[in-house]
Design a protein around this nucleic acid. Structure first.
Lengths: 190, 190
DNA sequence: AGAGTCATGTAAGCTGTTACATGATTCG
DNA sequence: CGAATCATGTAACAGCTTACATGACTCT
């Protein structure tokens, strides 16, 4: 039971197709849970079988038909139960950190590859920061942030988006400073 | 292939027993990769079978016997190859963020549970920050940070530890401000 | 006396990834 | 004309979690 509640949570925003959900989960928009499209489609079938969501089919002419999903009463109840359960501690698993940990034992070409990956990750983080910032601006509209957070009907998505930004800022800064520090130790020889 | 390289990376610090590794991976010390003890023992057998590590047994009297593992030449080569492979993008999967996303739809008791979990997570983060900070101090000894990073033989562990601290600071701050913001919207009624 | 530490595993089950499969439409 | 977008799935495999199993020693 994992993706399950993430899908239900995103469906709180309203009817969505599997395709839209899959995009959210495999790009970074649903910043709190990553999943591949295959997994999303599978989970939607299970959720429907368990009556936590319902779907209605939309017949389209110039596009493939699609199904739009909505959370049922039982789905809402399930989310309520989920909130009560102890949240399992967040488990970090990051290839890039493993490589940095082992950086000292790498040969020049390995180190070079690592520096490239750090830079790339920093760039990805920067790109995501921009996306998130536009999301926030769109959500809050005219209001100031604190004002929005006090008065808006729905603030969950705003709060998780804020988290996305701070995590990515952190990632970007760490990647850049780490790359610099590793470079500072291997002066260009020859 | 996943835990595999994380274990090899930790073993670069020198001979370790399965038990010690398991502790590192299931507590937060090996900050970059979480794994349960069972998984670590299993991975060590596989690594030994594939000759990427060797072990020697230590017979103990007042304690169970143990095996100490070391990275082989082939193990070092494997880490080198790993560094060259593109690092797979980091995938976030966090229960707590799912709950915050769904916060608006929770009843008072669900929201209360969530606030508790946010506080708890903030406390865990604070505790880990202290642990990491002591690790850093121990590693750098008398030297200043930038000095240490330029001159020390091995800095990988220091760099990942720095990352651990900034991630946990971020977690702590976000959990606390999020709890506050959610509380501000549900004034005590009655 | 009970909890925690040292020390190592096996087996079943669930979750996530990779590979495969299809096919029309729109944009550059 | 090739690539991307829309749209939905199945099957095999790899990785992670939960439950089970054992047993002496040390600290409160």
């Amino acid at each position: 039971m994992a993706l399950r509640h993430a899908v239900l949570a995103v469906l709180l925003d309203g009817e969505r197709s599997g395709y839209e959900l899959a995009k959210d989960f495999s790009r970074g928009v649903a910043n709190f849970w990553f999943a591949l499209p295959q997994q999303v489609y599978l989970e939607l079938s299970k959720l429907e079988k368990d009556k936590l969501v319902t779907s209605r089919q939309i017949i389209q002419e110039s596009r493939p038909n699609k199904r739009l999903f909505t959370v049922t009463e039982a789905g809402h109840a399930e989310l309520g139960r989920f909130a009560q359960d102890a949240a399992r501690p967040f488990a970090v698993r990051d290839d890039l950190l493993v490589k940095v940990y082992a950086a000292d034992s790498l040969d020049p070409s390995g180190l070079d590859a690592l520096l490239g990956q750090l830079t790339e990750r920093a760039e990805q983080a920067a790109a995501r920061i921009e996306v998130f910032e536009r999301c926030l601006a769109a959500m809050r509209g005219e209001s100031g942030e604190e004002d929005y957070l006090r008065t808006a009907e729905r603030i969950g998505p705003y709060l998780t988006c804020l988290r996305g930004i701070s995590v990515e800022c952190d990632t970007r800064d760490w990647c850049l400073s780490t790359a610099q520090r590793l470079r500072a130790r291997t002066p260009v020889t020859g």
